[in-house]
Computed example of a mutant assay.
Amino acid sequence: MSTLVKFSEERLLKVLLAPVISEKATMVAEKNEQVVFRVSPDATKPEIKAAVEMLFKVQVESVQVANRQGKQKRSGRFTGRRNHTKRAFVCLKPGQEINFTEEA
């Protein structure tokens, strides 16, 4: 729990944006015991680990991050780009579990 001391609680509340609920994220969760989150673009691995441990009261083994480029989209003759996102694949220690259906 020493990682919680390094960061302010206010900052940790802004790191995790949302859990990713998709077919790929569900397969990763079942196979590798990982949970996928959308995180703020400037979040670091230690911040993500501390935020998950603080909010969900679980122990995190490791964190992997992936930056995703926004897709190029077209509307009529104009082209635009969706926002870039950052995802965190959080590996929990054996026996740990995050249940998103529970009431807080």
Rank of each mutant, 00 (worst) to 15 (best):
S2H: 06
T3I: 13
T3M: 08
L4I: 05
V5C: 01
V5W: 00
K6Q: 13
F7Y: 14
F7A: 05
S8R: 13
S8E: 14
R11L: 15
R11M: 14
L12E: 02
L12S: 02
L12C: 01
K14G: 01
K14L: 10
V15N: 03
V15H: 03
V15R: 06
V20L: 03
V20G: 00
S22E: 00
K24M: 06
K24E: 09
K24G: 05
A25F: 02
T26D: 13
V28R: 11
V28A: 10
A29R: 15
E30G: 05
N32G: 01
N32M: 11
N32L: 14
V35T: 11
V36S: 03
V36C: 05
V36P: 03
V36N: 01
F37Q: 04
F37V: 03
F37P: 02
V39I: 15
V39W: 10
V39E: 13
S40L: 14
A43K: 07
A43N: 07
A43D: 08
T44F: 00
K45M: 12
P46D: 02
K49I: 04
A51G: 05
V52D: 03
V52C: 07
E53P: 10
E53S: 09
M54W: 08
L55Y: 06
L55V: 11
K57C: 05
V58L: 08
V58T: 03
V60Y: 06
E61L: 14
E61T: 00
V63W: 02
V63A: 01
V63G: 04
Q64K: 12
V65Q: 06
V65F: 00
A66H: 00
N67M: 09
N67Q: 11
Q69K: 15
Q69W: 03
G70R: 02
G70N: 04
G70C: 01
K71C: 01
K71N: 02
K71Q: 10
Q72P: 00
Q72W: 06
K73W: 06
K73F: 08
R74A: 10
S75P: 00
S75N: 11
G76P: 02
R77D: 11
R77K: 15
R77L: 14
F78K: 15
G80D: 08
R81P: 03
R82Q: 14
R82H: 08
R82V: 05
N83M: 11
H84S: 13
H84E: 10
T85S: 07
R87C: 00
A88G: 08
A88D: 09
C91Y: 10
C91G: 07
K93F: 10
K93L: 14
G95H: 06
E97D: 08
E97I: 11
E97K: 15
I98T: 10
N99E: 09
F100H: 04
E103N: 12
E103T: 13
A104M: 10
